Simulated scan of single mutants.
Amino acid sequence: MFGQERPAAGEASAEALRLEGVRRIYGAEGNRVAALDGVSLSLPAGSFTAVMGPSGSGKSTLLQCAAGLDRPTEGRVFVDGAELTGGGEAALTRFRRQRVGFVFQQFNLLPTLNVMENAVLPLKLAGRRVDKAAVRAVLERVGLGDRLDRLPAELSGGQQQRVAIARALVTRPRVVFADEPTGALDTRSARAVLELLRESVRTSGQTVVMVTHDPVAASFADSVLYLADGRIVGYQTSPTAETVAERMTRLADEVERQRTAAGV
C-alpha cells in the first residue's frame, strides 16, 4: 500500500526522494516510446535540484512519476522514505497531500477564492485543521500579507505564482515539485519566485525539484540533473547560468547528432 516504509539505510529523513530503475513506456505494442528509461537517483533532504534537458528528454515525465502524478511502467519511487506502490487513486491522492507540494507554470488558482482561501485549500481537501495564523505567516513570508482578501484577477502574474507557492508550502510537504514555475513570468517576477523557492530550502529544510528550460532559473538550484532520451546523462553542482547554458548547448548538439545518425 502507499506509505510502506523503506528498510532503514541510515536516517530516512536524510533522503527526500529516490527513484530506482524507473521506466515509463507510452504507446501500444510495436509503437512504444520510453519517456524514461531506467532512471535511478537519490536527492537529499533540504536540497534544490533543477532538471534540464532538450525537448522530449523526459523532464516532465520524471517529475510526474516522482510526484505520484503518473505511475512508472517499471521501477520504484520513494518520497521521504515511503514507497509509492500498490493501492488505488484515492490512496495515492492521500499520499500526495501528506508529503508532496506542487507548483506549476499555470498558477491553477480558483478565481472565486481570495488569496487566503486559495492558500488553505490543500489543508481543507486533506481534512486537516486550518491554522490561519500559520497560513498568514507563510503568505507574509511570500510578500502577500497585505493582500489576503484579493482575488486572483486582482493580482499580477508574479503575485499569483507566489500564492501558488504559499499553497504548496502550507501543508509542510517534504518535497515540492515545480514544473516550469517561472515560464509565464517576467524577469523580475521570475527572480522573486526563484528566491522564494530557494528560501524554502534554506529556512524550512524543504526539498525542491524543479523542471526548467531556463539556465538562469537553474542557477538558483544547488545542482542540475541533465536528461536526454529518458536517461540521466549528467550532473552539475554549484551551477551558474553560463555553465548551464554551455552544457545545454553541447547536450542538444549531441542529441541531434545521435538522432540524425539513427535516422530519427
Rank of each mutant, 00 (worst) to 15 (best):
L43K: 05
Q159H: 07
Q64Y: 14
E195K: 12
E11C: 05
A14F: 01
D149S: 13
T243P: 03
L43Q: 07
L121P: 02
V255E: 06
R76T: 10
L123Y: 07
R150G: 05
R231G: 02
R250M: 12
A221R: 01
R76E: 13
A12S: 14
V120F: 02
V224G: 04
F78Y: 15
T85L: 10
D70K: 06
C65S: 12
G38M: 03
G38W: 00
Y26N: 06
V211H: 00
K132V: 12
E15I: 14
R129L: 09
M210G: 02
E195W: 01
V120W: 03
T207M: 07
R23W: 13
A16C: 05
A66F: 01
G230R: 01
P173N: 13
C65V: 15
S40Y: 05
Q159K: 07
L92I: 08
A153H: 13
V176N: 04
R24E: 03
P111G: 13
M248C: 12
A245I: 07
S47K: 11
A153I: 11
L155V: 07
T49E: 04
G46F: 05
T207F: 01
L169N: 04
Q160R: 15
V264T: 14
V233L: 06
V130C: 10
Q206I: 00
N118D: 11
Q236G: 10
G88Q: 12
E29V: 13
G3V: 04
R150F: 09
A90L: 10
A45V: 10
L148T: 09
F2T: 09
V244R: 03
E74T: 14
G87Y: 04
E246C: 07
G58N: 04
T212I: 07
G68Q: 08
E256Q: 14
E89S: 11
L63Q: 06
P72L: 11
E256H: 11
G230M: 05
D186Y: 05
R188K: 14
A137Q: 14
P72I: 12
L196C: 08
A9W: 02
L194C: 12
L194E: 12
T93E: 11
E195G: 10
K59R: 12
I165D: 01
T212R: 03
E15F: 00
P215K: 10
A134L: 08
L69S: 08
A168K: 06
V233M: 05
G157T: 09
L185M: 09
L251C: 06
L84I: 15
G81R: 01
A241F: 01
R76H: 10
L151G: 08
R96K: 11
D179F: 00
G46A: 12
E242R: 15
N114K: 04
V39Y: 00
G158L: 10
M210P: 02
E154P: 06
V163R: 06
V209Q: 00
R97G: 14
N31A: 15
K59W: 02
Q236D: 13
T171M: 13
V138I: 15
F102N: 00
A12V: 12
R6T: 11
L41P: 06
G81L: 03
R174F: 00
R71A: 13
